[in-house]
Amino acid sequence: MAGSSAAPRVGVLALQGDVREHVALLSSLGADVVPVRRPSELASVDGLVLPGGESTVIDKLATTFGMRDPVRAAIADGLPVLGTCAGLILLAERIEDGIPGQRTFGGLDVTVRRNAFGSQLDSFETELDVPAIGPGPVRAAFIRAPVVSEMGPAARSLARLADGTVVAVEQGNLLGLSFHPEMTGESRFHRRFLDTVSTRTAD
């Protein structure tokens, strides 16, 4: 936006998961993208994507490699974050059906249920209406996906399945999705995230 001349510098948490797809999509939108595995790399970015992957593994590796507290502090400080699938789980304040001891970074005032649709046989793709990002349906891939099972007052639903289940939420600078826009050529959520980053860095 107005104040920033250079491309926004954003990170993708690169401990495990579909990091490459997010890096490619953000780069195609003109962002300067770096994989983030260390606190020093996190300190260098103005926004962070939490990719799809296995949430239990990302949680463990974040703890082991000293990323948990820096990511939590950055979120508390207002860092724009986009989370997809496992990333939504990691952004939730509360989880259901996690493994014993599983933790999240938190930030979104929601409860997220892990593997909410069942096994891989129940993974699916469908089309969603998401008015907040504009007209035209979103092709959404749900892969052993989580859902938002309970919404706190601070969070806003952006999209629901036909049965009313919430699958996209926003709260301040945080955006969490049950599905994978990075897999279906859907760039509007990433553009929205980059707009949030630009607005914040211009302040």
Binding site: D18, G53, E54, C85, D122, F124, E125, P137, R144, T184
Partner: peptide, 23 residues
């Protein structure tokens, strides 16, 4: 189609994409 679909190529390959960087 635009309707819900299980077992698509994207969904099948997609789970493997989510396992990347893992053991």
């Amino acid at each position: 189609s635009s309707s819900s679909e299980t077992g698509s190529t994207r969904v099948k390959r997609g789970l493997a994409e989510m396992l990347k960087g893992g053991v």
